[in-house]
């Protein structure tokens, strides 16, 4: 190999201007660096990967999957702490009812990321309360039907709408079995900085992604979880499904939990106990 290089440098046109000694030096430096790099990759691939992760791009990875466990036994009837906290956190309370919009229409159309549902067993009369939000499916039907790719699943399992791409067709709203998505029908005058919102786009719960992404270490919580705990119910547990040490994974391992509409085989990230 080096013979070939020597030959080409001796007779090649492009090497005329380069001093032979200098060229030799450059080639040596190049070879040395290549050998060092190859050696490092062979000797310590694990180390290199760690370094790349530490200094790396900061993208979310599929090493995590965010999810929730909701204990419906602890969810109190009449309590709307989670709903209110979600609305404040994500600026939903800043969307005002248009003057021409009658109350009954507004109640149906206003954006809502989380809502309380009451179930009653018709045989026994037992009432169950539960909050329902985007279930963050592993195989989200909203993403299947989205014609522009605006509905997408992040690497860490959060199902979101990229409203820069959303054209407001609302196919995803029809596809969602959980009725989790809302459409913004009117101009919105005021938004929170981390929660942009405007006319003509669909939106839904993003598991407080702004909190996750701005995480400065320590435990990440969602606004609804905080509010539920502050109200003394502790019905909502948020965490990383893939981390066996997380409180969520431990709780899921201990008790029976259900996915709503498990028959659809969407493998939801939000699970419920005692329903």
């Amino acid at each position: 190999m080096s013979d070939d290089l020597n030959k080409s440098s001796a007779h090649g046109v492009d090497s005329v201007c380069v001093e032979p000694a200098l060229e030799q030096q450059q080639r040596r430096a190049f070879l040395r660096n290549t050998v060092i790099a190859a050696g490092a990759a062979v000797v310590a691939p694990g180390l290199l990967i760690t370094v790349a992760k530490a200094t790396g791009s900061g993208d979310v990875t599929s090493n995590q999957r965010w999810g929730m466990l909701i204990d419906t036994d602890k969810c109190a009837s009449g309590c709307t702490a989670c709903v209110e906290a979600c609305e404040t956190e994500n600026g939903i309370d800043l969307v005002v009812q248009p003057k021409r919009n009658p109350d009954h229409l507004w109640e149906q159309q206003r954006p809502q990321w989380i809502r309380k549902v009451k179930l009653q067993d018709q045989q026994t009369g037992v009432v169950t309360n539960l909050p329902i939000m985007c279930q963050h499916c592993e195989k989200p039907p909203c993403c299947d039907v989205c014609p522009t790719g605006a509905s997408f699943k992040r690497a860490d399992g959060i199902v979101m709408v990229d409203r820069h791409i959303c054209i407001g067709c609302r196919y995803c709203m029809m596809a969602c079995p959980y009725k989790a998505r809302s459409f913004i029908h009117q101009h919105v005058a005021e938004q929170r900085s981390h929660a942009p919102r405007g006319i003509g786009c669909v939106e839904s719960c993003n598991l407080c992604a702004h909190r996750i992404d701005r995480d400065q270490g320590g435990e990440v919580t969602t606004a609804c979880q905080d509010a539920c705990a502050a109200a003394g119910h502790h019905a909502i547990l948020f965490g990383d499904l893939k981390d066996p040490e997380s409180a969520l994974a431990k709780a899921l391992a201990e008790q029976t939990s259900r996915q709503i509409r498990a028959d659809l085989e969407l493998n939801t990230g939000v699970r419920y106990t005692n329903i």
Partner: peptide, 18 residues
């Protein structure tokens, strides 16, 4: 950077509208 922030959850971006 908006695409990095929204789609990849990367907030170590240099250019944010906020």
């Amino acid at each position: 950077d908006r695409d990095r922030a929204v789609q990849r959850g990367n907030r170590s971006i240099n250019h944010s509208l906020v």
